[in-house]
Amino acid sequence: MKKLLTVCCCLLTLGASAQPGISEMQQAQQQLSSDFFSAFDFSLVIAGILGIIGAGRIYHNLQMGKKEFTTEVAAWFYAAIFMVLAGAFLRALFGI
Rank of each mutant, 00 (worst) to 15 (best):
L44T: 03
L4F: 08
Q31A: 07
T71E: 09
I53V: 13
H60K: 07
K2D: 14
K3M: 07
L32M: 12
A16M: 10
Q31R: 11
A16W: 02
F36W: 01
M1H: 12
S17Q: 09
D41W: 03
Q31I: 09
A47S: 10
W76E: 00
F40Q: 01
F37N: 01
A79T: 03
F69W: 07
F69H: 11
A79E: 04
F69C: 12
L32Y: 05
T70V: 14
F40G: 00
S23G: 02
C8K: 12
E68F: 08
R57E: 13
K66C: 08
A80Q: 05
L4Y: 12
T71L: 13
G48A: 08
F42Y: 09
C8A: 15
Q30D: 07
P20S: 05
C9K: 10
C9G: 11
F69A: 13
Q26L: 13
I52S: 09
G48N: 02
T71D: 13
V7D: 00
V7Y: 03
A18Y: 00
S43W: 00
F40R: 01
A18K: 09
I52T: 13
G51K: 11
G56R: 07
S33W: 04
G15E: 00
A55P: 07
K3F: 01
G65F: 08
S34T: 14
A74K: 12
I22H: 07
Q29W: 04
G21I: 03
E68W: 03
Q29A: 11
T71F: 03
Q27H: 10
Q30F: 09
F36T: 11
Q31C: 01
K2H: 14
G15W: 00
A75T: 02
M25G: 02
I58K: 04
S17E: 05
T6F: 00
G15C: 06
R57D: 08
A55L: 09
T6H: 02
I22Q: 13
S33Q: 10
S38I: 15
L5T: 14
G51R: 03
A28H: 13
Y78L: 10
S43K: 01
L44K: 04
F77N: 04
Q26P: 01
T13N: 03
S43C: 08
M1W: 04
N61Q: 08
T6W: 01
S34Q: 10
L50K: 02
K66Y: 04
E68V: 15
T6I: 12
C10Q: 05
I52D: 13
A16T: 06
H60C: 06
G56I: 06
S17K: 06
A55S: 13
Q30W: 09
A39R: 00
V7W: 04
M64S: 11
K3P: 02
C9L: 12
G65V: 10
L44H: 05
Q27K: 11
L44D: 01
V45M: 06
I53C: 05
Q19V: 13
Y78T: 05
A16S: 09
S38Y: 02
D35T: 15
M25I: 06
C8P: 07
L32F: 03
A18W: 01
K2V: 15
A80K: 04
A55H: 06
A74P: 01
K2E: 14
H60M: 05
Y78G: 01
L14A: 10
L32R: 06
